[in-house]
Computed example of a mutant assay.
Amino acid sequence: MHKWTTKGNTVSVLLADQQAVGFVAQGDQIKLGAQALIAGLKQRHMTPVMVTGDNQQVALSVAKQLGIASDHVHAELKPADKAAIVKQYQQAHQVVAMVGDGVNDAPSLAQADIGIAIGAGTDVALDSADVVLTRSEPADILNFLNLAQQTDRKMIQNLWFGAGYNIVAIPLATGLFAGIGLVLSPAVGAVLMGLSTIIVAINAQTLRVHETE
Rank of each mutant, 00 (worst) to 15 (best):
L37D: 00
M1E: 09
F161P: 01
D113K: 02
V62G: 11
H74D: 02
S136R: 00
V73D: 10
A110T: 12
F177G: 04
L159S: 12
N158Y: 03
I167S: 05
I85K: 14
Q90P: 06
K7F: 11
A125H: 12
N143L: 09
D130P: 03
M50G: 10
L207N: 02
G175N: 11
A69W: 00
D113M: 00
R135C: 01
Q29M: 11
I202K: 07
L182M: 15
V188T: 10
I198Q: 02
I118R: 05
L133P: 06
G121K: 10
K7D: 07
M193N: 11
T174H: 07
L14D: 13
L147G: 04
S185K: 03
M1K: 06
S108M: 14
A187M: 15
P48M: 15
I198Y: 04
G67P: 02
A75T: 06
I141W: 07
I202C: 11
G162L: 05
G189R: 03
V51T: 10
A25C: 11
A39P: 01
N55C: 13
L133V: 07
D101H: 07
R44Y: 06
F161R: 05
L41Y: 05
A97D: 01
T206V: 04
P186K: 09
L109I: 06
K7R: 14
V95Y: 15
M155P: 00
V131C: 13
T122Y: 08
A163I: 13
L172S: 06
P107Q: 09
N166I: 04
A39D: 12
I38D: 05
V86Y: 08
G189K: 04
L184A: 08
N158Q: 05
Q94M: 12
K154D: 06
H2D: 13
D71A: 08
Q35H: 09
T122G: 10
L41F: 04
M46L: 15
I199Y: 10
I114Q: 05
A173L: 06
L77F: 07
A25D: 08
K82A: 14
H93F: 07
G175R: 11
M50F: 12
L126Q: 14
G179L: 02
L60Q: 15
Y165Q: 11
Q88G: 09
G67E: 13
I30M: 09
V132W: 04
A97P: 01
T134E: 15
A125T: 11
T122D: 10
T122K: 03
G22K: 08
A97S: 11
T122I: 06
L207Q: 02
G189S: 13
L14W: 07
V96G: 10
S185C: 08
L172I: 03
T212G: 04
D101P: 03
K3L: 13
T6D: 09
H72Y: 14
